[in-house]
Amino acid sequence: MQIDGEDLLDAPIDCVWQALNDPAVLARCVPGVTALVPTGPDAYDAEIKLAIGPLKGTFKGTVRITEQVPPEAMTLTVDGAAPMGGVNAAGRLALETQGTGTLVRWQAEPKLRGTLATVGARLIGPVSKQQTTAFLKAIEAEARQLASSRR
C-alpha cells in the first residue's frame, strides 16, 4: 500500500534538515522510540513501542537514512520485528521552502508481515499517517528551537 501526505512545518528548511539528521532528535521525535543507538553513518538500532489497532508491541529493528540530497530529500527506512510480526517502511521525504516555513512531502510504502499483515493491513494506512504527522510535528518543534537558538 502506498501512502503519502504533506505537512507544512513552521521552521526554516536547514533547521528541519539538521533536526532530521540528529540521532538525539530522532530518538525524541520518532513516536514510541525507547532506544536509538547509532551503528554507523546514518544507521541506528532502534526499539519502538507501537500499537496498530488491537496489536501492541515493542519492535526491535533498524533505522537507516539514505539517498540524502541536503537539504531537500532523504529516505528514512524503518525495519522492525515484534512477536506479532514485522514492519518495513521506506519513507521518502522531500523538503521545500515555503514562505518562512518548510513544506514536507512524504511518501511511504509500509509492508507488514506475520499476524500484523493479516490483522493490521487495513489499519496500517491511518496509523502510518498519524505517526508521520506526529513525527513531523515533533521535528517542527525541534527545528524551531534550533532556529531560535541560532538567532
Binding site: 509492508k111 508481515r113 506475520g114 499483515a117 490483522v119
Partner: peptide, 13 residues
C-alpha cells in the same frame, strides 16, 4: 500480496 503475506489471514478479511 507480492511478499507472500496472507492478506486474508483472518475471518475479518
Amino acid at each position: 500480496d507480492d511478499d507472500g503475506q496472507l492478506v486474508t489471514g483472518s475471518l475479518l478479511e
